[in-house]
C-alpha cells in the first residue's frame, strides 16, 4: 500500500516517474480512449525504463509507442487496435517479428481484464465471470481457469487478479490536498489505481475546491503516491472539459508506425529514446 502523500504535495512528473517506476515493474497506464496518460508514458521512455510488463485494456497508441521504443518485455491486454483506424503496427512488429525484441503476450477479453483489475483492487486472488467458456483464450491456464460455484454447482470462468506495481492515470483535477477528480468516461481507472501498489496521477489543473459533478470519480490522496500537474497530458487522447480527441493524429499514427524508420524518426523528433538494442 502507498504511504500517504503529504497533503498539498504536488510533484514534478520526472520525479514521480524516477521514484515510483522501476525497471522490471508491472505498470498499468489506464484510460479507456479518454484520459490516456501519454505524457507520463513518454517520461517513462525518456528515463530509459526497461523490461516492463505493460498492462492495459486497450494498448492504443500509447503502448504502440512504448513497445516500439523497447520499454516492454510483456504485454497484458484485451484489445490491441488503433480504434477506427486499424492495426497497431509496433505491437504487431514486436509480436510477429520480435522487433525491437520479443514481446510476450497475455490476453483477455475486456470483461476478463476489467474483472482482473476489480479483484486486484479488492485484494482477492481471482474474479468470477461467465465469459471465456469455449474460447481459445481459456488455454492461457496461468491467468484463466474455471471454478465451480459452491452454491449452484455452475461452472464459471475464473480470472487471476491483476495487481500492478504502479498504475498511472490522467485526470482533470486535483485539489490543494492532492485529492483527484475525474469525470466523463472513467473506464477502469478507479480499479487500476486501487489494485496497484503505487499510483501516479497527472492532472490538467489544481483547484481550491472540486466542482459538483454527476458521475465523477474521486480518489483520496492517501491512495495516491504522486500527483503531477501536466496540462494536456492526455494528448492525442483527450480530457473532457479541457480538450478534444485528436482524431487526425490517430489517423496519422498509422503511417508513422507502419515503418520502423518513420517510427524512429518520430521518436527522435519527440526526444524519446530509441531502444538500446534496436
Amino acid at each position: 500500500m502507498p504511504s500517504p502523500a503529504p497533503p498539498g504535495t504536488i510533484t514534478a512528473l520526472s520525479e514521480a516517474i524516477a521514484e515510483h517506476v522501476h525497471d522490471g515493474d508491472t505498470v498499468a497506464l489506464e484510460g479507456f480512449t479518454h484520459l490516456i496518460p501519454f505524457a507520463a508514458a513518454h517520461e517513462i521512455a525518456r528515463q530509459g525504463r526497461r523490461h516492463l510488463t505493460l498492462v492495459r485494456m486497450t494498448p492504443d497508441l500509447v503502448y504502440d509507442q512504448l513497445i516500439g521504443l523497447g520499454v516492454a518485455d510483456r504485454l497484458v491486454f484485451s484489445y490491441g487496435g488503433n480504434p477506427g483506424v486499424g492495426s497497431l503496427h509496433r505491437l504487431r512488429d514486436a509480436v510477429e517479428n520480435s522487433w525491437p525484441h520479443p514481446l510476450a503476450v497475455q490476453e483477455h477479453s475486456h470483461a476478463g481484464l476489467a474483472n482482473a483489475y476489480s479483484a486486484g483492487a479488492a485484494r482477492l486472488p481471482f474474479a468470477v465471470l461467465r465469459g471465456y467458456r469455449g474460447t481459445d483464450l481459456e488455454r492461457q491456464r496461468d491467468i484463466i481457469s474455471s471454478v465451480t460455484c459452491p452454491f449452484t454447482g455452475e461452472e464459471l470462468a475464473a480470472v487471476k487478479a491483476v495487481n500492478p506495481d504502479v498504475t498511472v492515470i490522467h485526470a482533470q483535477l486535483a485539489d490543494r490536498d492532492g485529492n483527484v477528480m475525474l469525470w466523463g468516461i472513467t473506464g477502469v481507472q478507479r480499479e487500476a489505481v486501487l489494485a496497484a501498489d503505487r499510483a501516479i496521477v497527472t492532472v490538467e489543473q489544481v483547484v481550491d475546491e472540486f466542482p459538483e459533478r454527476t458521475g465523477a470519480v474521486i480518489l483520496p490522496n492517501w491512495v495516491l503516491s504522486a500527483v503531477c500537474v501536466v496540462p494536456n497530458g492526455a494528448w492525442p487522447s483527450y480530457a473532457a472539459g479541457y480538450s478534444v480527441r485528436d482524431n487526425d493524429f490517430y489517423q496519422r499514427w498509422d503511417a508513422i508506425a507502419r515503418d520502423r524508420d518513420s517510427f524512429l524518426a518520430w521518436a527522435a523528433d519527440n526526444d524519446l529514446k530509441e531502444s538500446a538494442d534496436a
Binding site: T58, Y79, G80, S109
Partner: peptide
C-alpha cells in the same frame, strides 16, 4: 502468429 490481430475486446461476452 503470422498476423497479430487486435484481439477479443468486448466480443466474447
Amino acid at each position: 502468429p503470422k498476423v497479430r490481430l487486435p484481439g477479443a475486446g468486448g466480443a466474447p461476452e
